[in-house]
Write a protein that binds this DNA or RNA. Structure first.
Lengths: 109, 109
DNA sequence: TCCATATTTCTAATATTATCGAAATAATAT
DNA sequence: ATATTATTTCGATAATATTAGAAATATGGA
């Protein structure tokens, strides 16, 4: 994963409403949740919600699929895993807690 | 960790220059790096760098300490770990890949 | 004290993001 | 066809973030 994509996904999560949307969708599981359900659950006006759903979809943290007249959103779990892996290995790995050279480098768990 | 703090730290990392600063500091290890060294390493003008260092310090992703006339910045590893833990457990935990109820819920690793 | 070095704060311009009402689009049902 | 429901796009505004030059502050040395 490239740093640029990491920044984009971090930006996706770095906003109150969007983090709440993502949390909700993770909890909703693979079946996802319709936009309207998210809106009522979080108390966010439709247009505002739509804006944030698009942000999350653009950085691929969530997916969308139409079912009837509803649009069902779901968390893209693999994409989140990629981000976590990036942060663990490519961004934040390699720190030494002790500072002693030649020691095993600490990884985020 | 509260969601609000998670958003603040995510915001800290959700910017190209700041993620590069944080990476550099993680790589620098516990000894950290002086502001001037970071500036020359990343090619960022002093005032701009100072702005981003403050952002990172405000959300506690980095620490600062004076040594002589230099200000030494270092990554706050524990703070990053807290963020990762939050994302794993409080935000993104509880997803079920299979979608079957009553199964062990998948955790980000 | 006076100078050089290191870095921050001030300030103002610019750019990006967030909000949300109203109108438009899409799907289904009558 | 028309209405109903679900959601998006448009458009305008407000809020926040980013950039960086110039001036200010802090430290250590001659």
């Amino acid at each position: 994963m490239e740093m640029n994509d990491a920044v984009r996904r971090l930006t996706g999560l770095a906003q109150d409403t969007r983090l709440r949307i993502f949390r909700l969708l993770v909890r909703a599981g693979p079946g996802g949740a319709a936009a309207g359900r998210i809106a009522s659950q979080l108390g966010v006006p439709p247009a505002t919600l739509s804006f944030h759903l698009r942000e999350l979809a653009d950085c691929e943290l969530i997916r969308v699929e139409r079912r009837g007249r509803s649009l069902i959103y779901s968390a893209d779990y693999g994409s989140m895993q990629e981000l976590m892996d990036y942060l663990r290995h490519d961004c934040c790995g390699g720190i030494s807690k002790s500072g002693r050279a030649g020691r095993a480098r600490q990884e985020l768990t």
